[in-house]
């Protein structure tokens, strides 16, 4: 029952996004034919009425609104996102080529930052209120508050432009030739290092705090006392009894954060000119390629929604207490 309700909710959100995507160009000031036919800044159309009629029929804009909406949804479900005017290519194929880069840095950064957060958090909780805990705690708080794209800029100018340790832009050396696969991988890692580092630095703090808090709660439980009374060694207590229970909120958080991580990745990609969809989105904005913009937006939304949905399922699977 509850599950069906959740699915229904996601379907509603999905349709809100689709409708938003459908209506926003139609709410925009101006109309496409004036824009197409007039000079920059002028509002007078040089098309005759017949020409406009013809184009309207050609683009299906003469139909009533609900029929346009129906066509739009129908095309979406066939995977047809439209045609990019600027790139002269179907939107879906452009996005497909670029999205892999974004998913790459997002996934790698999430994995690294959550692992780092969990372990450092557990370490901090184990040594709670000691000097080392306090130092780690304040560093983590500071980094968790700074948005990722500002960290990215510090890294770009500090380590790439200033020191020259890392490439300034791109995801891979242009026209690079490699002796073998490993060199290519090395090149990709070299390019992706700073973007991932920026995302990791800004995310780890959140996971750390969560892991530290839940670990402290777990450590104060009676069964932990029993465990140490039984004479189990520290490592076993932390990993087998502590972390296993403390890890749950972190997993929930990982999926819940996805939307904001993608948001961060969009900006970070632009700092490093990384060839993902965040960069693509800015290019689309710069050349006013509205069809492409909408396609990217829709894809990010679907990605985030799917992940949230998975989070719901995963949470229920590992923690039956979630109703």
């Amino acid at each position: 029952m509850n599950c069906i309700k959740r699915i229904l909710e996601y379907i509603i959100v999905f349709f809100v996004i689709i409708s938003f995507n459908f209506f926003i160009p139609r709410l925009m000031p101006g109309d496409p034919f004036t824009f197409l036919s007039s000079d920059e800044g002028s509002v007078h159309s040089s098309y005759t009425d017949e020409q406009i009629e013809k184009y309207k029929a050609y683009y299906g804009l003469d139909k009533p609104l609900w029929e346009q909406y129906k066509d739009y949804v129908y095309n979406l479900f066939r995977g047809d996102l439209g045609y990019s005017i600027y790139y002269n290519e179907a939107v879906s194929s452009i996005i497909l080529k670029r999205v892999i880069w974004t998913i790459g840095i997002v996934v790698v950064s999430i994995v690294l930052s959550s692992l780092l957060g969990i372990f450092v958090g557990a370490f901090s909780a184990w040594h709670r209120n000691s000097a080392i805990d306090k130092i780690i705690y304040s560093i983590m708080i500071v980094f968790s508050e700074i948005p990722s794209f500002l960290i990215a800029m510090l890294l770009l100018f500090g380590l790439a432009a200033g020191k020259g340790w890392f490439p300034l832009s791109g995801g891979i050396t242009v026209f690079g030739e490699y002796k073998n696969v490993f060199e290519k991988i090395k090149d990709i890692v070299h390019h992706g290092f700073l973007p991932v580092l920026a995302l990791v630095l800004s995310q780890t703090g959140g996971y750390y705090l969560l892991s530290r808090n839940s670990m402290i709660t777990v450590l104060s439980k009676d069964y932990m006392l029993t465990a140490s009374a039984k004479g189990l060694d520290d490592r076993r207590i932390i990993f087998r009894h502590g972390l296993k229970n403390a890890i749950l909120p972190v997993i929930t958080r990982i999926f819940m954060n996805l939307g904001s991580v993608f948001g961060g990745a969009i900006l970070v990609e632009n700092v490093f000119s990384y060839p993902g969809i965040g960069r693509l989105m800015r290019e689309a904005v710069m050349v006013r390629d509205y069809v492409l913009m909408q396609g990217i937006f829709l894809n990010i939304c679907i990605l985030v929604l799917t992940m949230n949905f998975l989070a719901d399922i995963v949470c229920r699977k590992i923690d039956p207490r979630v109703e």
Binding site: V13, F20, I24, G259, F262, G263, V285, F297
Partner: peptide, 16 residues
Amino acid sequence: IVLPDLPMMIILGAFF
């Protein structure tokens, strides 16, 4: 809450 806000802001900013 589920909507990714930055992409949406970019779209709105670009269109309006």
